[in-house]
Design a protein around this nucleic acid. Structure first.
Length: 416
DNA sequence: CGTCCACAGGAATGACGGGCGG
DNA sequence: CCGCCCGTCATTCCTGTGGACG
């Protein structure tokens, strides 16, 4: 069969088929549904806590925590959107701001984002954090408003920077005479409390709302409700739905993941020309998601991180199971030489290894070998095929995959 | 039971490109 | 245009340490 006719067939099959989706947008995790099943309690609690702002009183600060995909963000946005509508209806001078701390990245950008929400524009950079904070205070005071600031993924901010911004925000009311600020802190990490200054903690958690993971039954309900909107009638088998819920329940009850799984499974089914999404499609979607995650992570690494990956790869291939820091640095040095790059210091490579560990591309464990020192044993968490696929668009790196480091042949110190 | 290896990982500091206010 | 500050990446210097060896 000629290529042209193959392609013709692909196109015509695409055009003539109805597909499994009715509206795939509702499966995206930024989609905010009309109803949030099994979160009635949290909605009520949060609603009760923020309600005082309608009467122009400051509401308590709230600390919201729970694992990823348990509905924290959705519930917060859900409640705030409705509160905003009510406030407009009653003419209450309330202002809202939602910032994702991980996406914003730095204290400065978080603060800038808060400023923008009260129509105070600040430069991208150039000012000190303190200066921006002063301007914010001044502008807010002049605006005479009750403000609610929701800081999502606040744990990321505290762990990578400090709780300084949080501290400043919790005591900003002391400096305001005409306005008031309340904070909603949303954290994925339950242990965040341990990292916080006690003063910040007590002030931030005037109220606390906990989001437990969904169990398989609850996930099934959530998925069923979305699937109703997302798929054509009968295009999703009950078995597939249940499997999807079960898989996500096994993984900390993460609803976001469950929705992803369902969407990708639908795409797999469409590509295969199936009219119904089956359990098999779900299984395939599971593999596909993981595969894509790894490829993307690998492809987006900096050059030096890629070289570290390659170094570990060479070592694991050459002398067995795990590599240690010293060896990795040796091989890494040689690879840098091959590319005529000046190598980074061992200290720096050490933190790169830690970052790769956090990404799940490597597995690093500190071990003591007694007399023979203390080091890290490092294992690769990705296959050769994946590395090849991810590095293929850079032929310098492609060449290094098959390169045999000289430093490996001369000393065969393979110790466990 | 102390020593000492081979690093881990914290702290301070610097170089650099970007961007502001004045 | 200058002086200043930003965030990011990297280096330098450093103190800390689990446990096999002697």
């Amino acid at each position: 069969m000629k290529e042209a006719s193959v392609l013709d067939e692909v196109f015509s099959r695409f055009l003539n088929r109805i597909g499994v989706f009715k509206d795939r947008e509702v499966l995206r995790h930024d989609y905010l549904p009309e109803r949030l099943p099994h979160r009635e309690d949290q909605i009520k609690r949060l609603g009760e806590t923020v309600a005082p702002v309608l009467k122009e009183a400051r509401c308590s600060n709230i600390f919201v925590y729970g694992k990823t995909g348990t509905g924290k963000t959705a519930v917060t946005k859900y409640v705030l959107t409705r509160l905003e509508a009510k406030a407009r209806e009653f003419g209450a001078p309330v202002s809202f701001c939602y910032v994702n701390c991980r996406l914003a990245g730095t204290e400065y950008r978080i603060l800038a984002s808060v400023c923008n929400s009260i129509q105070l524009s600040v430069p991208f950079t150039g000012l000190s954090v303190g200066e921006v904070f002063e301007r914010f205070k001044k502008a807010l005071n002049a605006a005479k408003k009750i403000m609610i600031i929701a800081l999502d993924e606040v744990d990321v901010l505290v762990k990578s920077r400090s709780d300084a911004l949080l501290y400043e925000l919790t005591r900003i009311n002391e400096a305001l005479s005409q306005s008031k600020v309340s904070i909603i802190g949303i954290s994925n990490d339950l242990r965040l409390k341990e990292f916080l200054d006690p003063r910040v903690l007590s002030s931030l958690s005037e109220e606390e709302i906990v989001f437990r993971p969904y169990d398989a039954e609850e996930l099934r309900d959530i998925l069923a409700e979305r699937a109703q909107m997302a798929f054509r009638d009968g295009a999703l088998s009950e078995g597939a739905l249940r499997l999807c819920a079960a898989l996500a329940a096994a993984e900390h009850g993460d609803a976001r993941r469950a929705l992803d799984l369902l969407r990708v499974a639908g795409e797999v089914a469409e590509r295969k020309g199936a009219d119904i999404v089956t359990e098999e499609h779900i299984r395939e979607a599971e593999k596909l998601i993981e595969h894509n995650r790894v490829i993307e992570a690998l492809a987006n690494l900096t050059l030096h991180s890629k070289l570290v990956i390659l170094s570990v790869f060479q070592l694991v291939r050459a002398n067995g199971y795990r590599a240690v820091t010293g060896e990795i640095y040796e091989v890494y040095n040689e690879l840098c030489g091959e590319l005529a790059l000046t190598p980074l210091t061992q200290r720096r490579v050490s933190t790169l290894v830690n970052e790769l560990d956090a990404l799940g591309l490597l597995n690093a464990q500190v071990v003591s070998m007694g007399r023979y020192g203390r080091t890290k044993k490092i294992r690769l968490e990705v296959t050769r095929t994946l590395i090849r696929e991810a590095f293929s668009n850079d032929n310098r790196l492609g060449r290094l995959i098959d390169y045999e480091p000289k430093c490996l042949s001369k000393d065969a110190r393979c110790r466990n």
